[in-house]
């Protein structure tokens, strides 16, 4: 099978990212682009990834399956992929923000961790 020709959706998407980065600088407005909601030829996502490139930060999350959070070569634009516990992709997005919300520690988790730490310390005499 020969490589398929393209939908032409990459260019407008790149423009959308550019506008979103401008907004982030100007107003602090964040944005999420759901890549699963728009059509791409099979080769186009690969191409998009190549154009956006790899930036400074790369993180992996392990909660209900793996997630990869990769800053693109354009700081402030993040490529985020969530997988489920069966390692199937469940969502693929580009987020425009200072730091993706999913990386932030959550109050409930901090609380639970704190409890555990306290009980551990309570059982050990210093």
């Amino acid at each position: 099978m020969q490589p398929l020709e393209k939908t032409g959706n990459i260019l407008p998407l790149l423009h959308e990212i550019r506008h979103a980065l401008e907004d982030l600088l100007a107003t602090g407005q964040t944005m999420v682009i759901d890549l699963q909601a728009m059509p791409f030829a099979p080769s186009e996502l690969v191409e998009l990834k190549e154009i956006l490139g790899v930036g400074e930060v790369s993180a992996e999350l392990h909660a209900l399956g793996k997630s990869t959070i990769q800053e693109t070569a354009f700081s402030g634009a993040w490529w985020i992929v969530h997988f489920n516990i069966d390692e199937k992709m469940i969502s693929q997005t580009i987020e425009i923000c200072h730091i993706p919300a999913i990386l932030m520690a959550q109050h409930a988790d901090i609380q639970m961790g704190l409890q555990q730490l306290s009980s551990t310390l309570g059982g050990v005499s210093l």
Binding site: A37, L61, S91
Partner: peptide, 23 residues
């Protein structure tokens, strides 16, 4: 044993699933 962060991830996937805005 699923953390709050895991729950938020699930919500993000659900939003995508329901074709709802990430907002």
């Amino acid at each position: 044993g699923v953390s709050r962060r895991g729950f938020l991830k699930f919500c993000a996937a659900t939003a995508s699933l329901m074709a709802l805005s990430p907002a």
